[in-house]
Amino acid sequence: MQFDKYILQKIDEELKNYVNKDDKLYNASKHLLFAGGKRIRPYLTVVTYMLKKDDIEKVLPAAVAVELIHNYTLIHDDIMDNDDERRGKPTVHKVYGEPIAILAGDLLYAKAFEAVSKINNEKKSYEVLKILSKACVDVCEGQAMDMEFENYFPSMEEYLEMIRKKTGALLEAAVEIGAVMGDCNEEERKALKEYAKRIGLTFQIQDDILDLIGDKKKIGKPVGSDIREGKKTIIVIHALKTLDEDNKKKLLNVLGNKNISDEEIKEIIEILKPSIDYAKNLMKQKTEEAKNYLKIFDKDRRKVLEDLADFIIERIY
């Protein structure tokens, strides 16, 4: 799908208002912010708002608050995972060092709440604040769960709960905030929450798939890096439940081995194909469910959200 360039331009203009100083700290905070991210979260906020409203200027501070929080989580994530690259560029801590990177993340976090304070309706500002702070708590809990999974193999239910928090929470918040700003009623807000839950799930599953069969240049990291890092993705969890003993042993032998060759990665990807298909089918099912929840909205206005649900599982990076 083509994202509306006017909306993206307005989001970027609004973002620049919060990081417009030119010094080391602000340059570090801008390093990822303007490094070619897709802007899915603020875009979701704006197009959800547009289900009922047309004046997008009023929703921009709320939309960029979500994007600022998202980028704060990415900077801190990269430090925790000791990642060298993101979006095909060196990570913030690799360029500026860890202390400045931590501060740059904290700055974006604080700026998000500055953006919320710019919402010119006190009731809505309070609602957005509640949604955003809950999402931040969920992201932290989800990240902690993900780190705990390094010590054991989670069940499918535990994994899905982790991605609902770590990845889904901010996507849900983006949609919920758009609904608040657009004056959606209770029934509409519930439907949008269900829609958002499902696209949050599919977003992470597609990331898990792209790590194995994506294009290295497009995804900005080596294919199979989740295997090398020992990540317990939905694909690995499904495989361990369904593979025969020989293939299970092969998978367990390479999982978390940073020194395995590209050839070994290829062999493992071959073994994982049925589980990749399982993940793809689950995404299709959840995407259809997501779109069904939008049926209560005007057909023309809801189309962007329907297209976004499809885009999330068809994207190649």
Rank of each mutant, 00 (worst) to 15 (best):
E263F: 07
I276L: 02
L240K: 13
P274Q: 10
D246K: 15
K266N: 14
S261F: 03
I260R: 08
K250M: 09
V254T: 14
L252F: 03
E245Y: 01
D277E: 15
L255W: 01
K250I: 11
K248Q: 09
S261R: 06
E264S: 06
T242S: 12
K258Q: 13
Y278N: 06
E267L: 10
D246V: 15
K280H: 06
K249F: 11
V254K: 04
I260G: 08
E270L: 13
K248V: 06
E245V: 09
N259G: 07
I260E: 02
Y278S: 03
N253W: 02
D277Q: 12
P274L: 09
K250T: 07
K258V: 07
T242F: 03
I260W: 02
L255R: 05
N247R: 13
G256T: 10
K250A: 10
K273D: 13
K266I: 07
I271P: 10
N247I: 12
L252T: 13
K273H: 13
I265M: 11
K258T: 03
N259F: 04
K280T: 00
V254H: 00
P274W: 09
K249E: 15
T242L: 01
I276W: 02
D244Y: 04
S275I: 05
I260D: 00
K280Y: 07
K280I: 03
K249P: 10
E263M: 08
D246I: 14
A279Y: 03
S275E: 04
N259P: 00
E267P: 00
L240W: 10
I269F: 02
L251C: 04
K280S: 08
L240P: 07
E263R: 14
K258G: 03
S261T: 15
D277L: 10
D246N: 15
T242P: 01
E264L: 11
Y278E: 04
L252M: 14
I268D: 00
A279F: 05
S261W: 02
E263D: 14
G256M: 07
V254M: 05
N253Y: 06
I269T: 08
D277C: 02
L272I: 07
D277A: 09
K280A: 04
L252I: 14
K250Y: 04
E267C: 04
E245F: 02
I276G: 02
E267M: 06
I269G: 04
L255I: 09
E270P: 07
K266R: 15
I269E: 00
K241V: 11
N257M: 06
I268T: 08
K258L: 15
N257E: 11
L252K: 14
L251N: 05
G256V: 08
Y278A: 06
K249M: 14
I268C: 04
E245W: 00
E245M: 06
S261A: 08
D244I: 11
L272C: 06
I271T: 09
E270M: 13
D244N: 15
K273A: 11
I271C: 13
L243F: 08
D246H: 12
D244F: 04
N257W: 07
K241M: 12
E263L: 09
L251S: 05
E245H: 02
E267D: 12
A279G: 06
E264R: 12
S261V: 11
S261N: 05
N253P: 00
E267Y: 05
K273L: 14
I265S: 07
K241A: 13
S275A: 14
I271L: 12
V254R: 01
S261D: 01
K273N: 15
D262R: 11
L252E: 15
